[in-house]
Nucleic acid binder design. Structure first.
Lengths: 194, 194
DNA sequence: AACGTAATCGGACTCTTGGTCCGCTTGAGC
DNA sequence: GCTCAAGCGGACCAAGAGTCCGATTACGTT
């Protein structure tokens, strides 16, 4: 994120403070509880600083999400199988859904807030495009007869913060992920195009 | 909608005016172009009138959506097959998806706006609950071995205004519906629970 | 160590929007 | 006509996103 040369020390410190404040507010109240004013106050910086750093509310939430999902992205690109390259497509798909599901289950509130903030440009969001591209690739490889592009969107549509909270019972935090994986295998093993 | 006895003539006239103004604004600009002030101004009524009638921005959009989908709901409850009762489950499911798809394709902007306005309570919305209940019933009947509740949510998750606009090419307005139907049959015909 | 400067900071300010309030108006039953 | 509750409307409020610019400060240079 060093734009020209290096980032000034105070700038780096402030960015970390803002991100930490955001996640704290997200954790305390709902996503709508996170206003820029509050974030700035809690982080001990001015409002302008938040905007210079992250551009907008959407940018702030997106940065947080990106931070939480960096490991998964790296694992996909060059990590060990089955998440990384080399494993059978089906295993890679299930490993990916497992990883994304874990992130989603652990950050449902952040997901909702991000979705709401991005509003009109959800499908242009870099994270979304990345997940979609990966999914489409795997699906297309496994089942060239299906509409991989649409199915990738359909699978991702299910990763909705509200839905996850709505569907996750207290005693079974991975239920959502299992359901998604089961649906994906049903699609993979389903009948072909007539 | 007559709360006690009958609705005063001016009240009814104003409600129609507000709804018509809303759909006009929705049609002209994007969903975020529809502010209550603008709606009230275009309808020629005061802001308070809009709120008394519809309660909130979400209520206004929901009322419009409900108006657009009333026929489908009636058709499901007591219309002729295959939409109404009596046809094989599979045919009813496809007919329902066809009807809902048509509504969604024709009101993508309204869908987006409604979704954004409802925000935190999408799953409590009467329309949503109604569609979900119907879908869950059909899926559960056809495939008692699957998680009908989750799959109903998953199918509905795909009815996203932005996604529909993003996926509907100019020359093929029903493409989205066909994709959804195809996905649904893949799920119906897929393998059972291991 | 002192300096120059460009990056950074911060909070006052603007603008828009959802929602509330309350005194005034009016439709409709008698 | 008369009454009066239902309905009206727009001033008002609070909150939040995003902008601006004078003050501040980190840091490479000398």
């Amino acid at each position: 994120m060093a734009q020209h040369r290096t980032e000034r020390a105070d700038a780096a410190r402030n960015r970390r403070a803002v991100l930490r404040a955001t996640e704290q507010l997200l954790h305390e109240g709902g996503g709508e509880h996170v206003s820029i004013d509050r974030v700035a106050a809690l982080a001990g910086v001015g409002k302008g600083t938040v905007f210079r750093r992250f551009g907008s509310r959407a940018g702030l939430l997106q940065a947080l999400l990106e931070e939480r999902s960096r490991d998964l992205r790296d694992g996909i690109a060059d990590g060990p199988p089955p998440l990384g390259p080399g494993a059978p497509v089906r295993d890679r798909l299930l490993a990916f859904l497992d990883g994304l599901g874990a992130i989603a289950e652990g950050n449902a509130v952040l997901l909702s807030a991000h979705e709401q903030a991005c509003a009109e440009d959800k499908y242009g969001d870099p994270s979304y495009r990345s997940w979609h591209g990966h999914l489409r690739g795997l699906l297309g490889e496994a089942r060239p007869d299906l509409d991989a592009d649409f199915l990738a969107h359909a699978l991702l549509a299910v990763f909705d913060g509200d839905l996850i909270r709505h569907m996750t019972p207290p005693g079974d935090p991975r239920r959502f992920t299992r359901s998604v994986q089961h649906m994906a295998t049903a699609l993979l093993d389903g009948p072909g195009q007539p």
